[in-house]
Amino acid sequence: MAMQEEEIRAHILEALPDAVVEITDLAGDGDHYACRVVSKAFEGLNRVRQHQLVYEALGGKMGSTLHALALKTETP
């Protein structure tokens, strides 16, 4: 079963409550998303660590329930 946009958003906001999360369904299939996350939690972290925080927020669903996520992270 594919992961819905709101479920992705909820997981990210639970881990990063200040985040602004923008999600786009790239293929219209609920399986391939682009996600932009803006959070103060990313300040001072390199891009790899920023992405790891988002993947950790998804609780291991990346690669299983969530097939593909093009991720862009930023600080405010």
Rank of each mutant, 00 (worst) to 15 (best):
S64H: 09
K40N: 05
Y33H: 09
R47K: 11
G60A: 10
C35I: 08
L66H: 08
D29R: 05
L66T: 12
H51D: 09
G63L: 01
L26A: 13
Q50Y: 02
H51R: 15
A41V: 05
V37T: 03
L66Q: 08
G44T: 13
R36L: 12
H32F: 07
A27E: 14
E56K: 15
V37S: 11
E14W: 00
K72C: 10
E74Y: 01
D25I: 08
Y55V: 13
Q4L: 00
E74A: 15
E22L: 13
R36W: 02
Q4C: 04
A68H: 08
P17N: 10
S64W: 11
M62E: 06
K61P: 00
A68V: 03
F42E: 12
I23L: 12
E22C: 08
M1P: 04
Q50C: 15
Q52H: 09
Q52A: 14
V38T: 15
A70Q: 14
H11Y: 13
A68I: 09
G63K: 08
Y55T: 13
A10V: 10
E7Y: 09
A10S: 14
L13G: 08
E7P: 01
E7G: 11
H51T: 11
E14F: 04
D31K: 13
I12N: 04
R36T: 15
A19F: 03
E56C: 08
R49V: 01
Y33I: 05
M3C: 11
E43G: 01
I8M: 03
D29C: 05
H51A: 14
V37Q: 00
L58V: 09
A27W: 04
K61G: 11
M1V: 03
A57R: 14
N46T: 00
Q50G: 02
G30T: 12
P76M: 02
E56D: 15
H67Q: 13
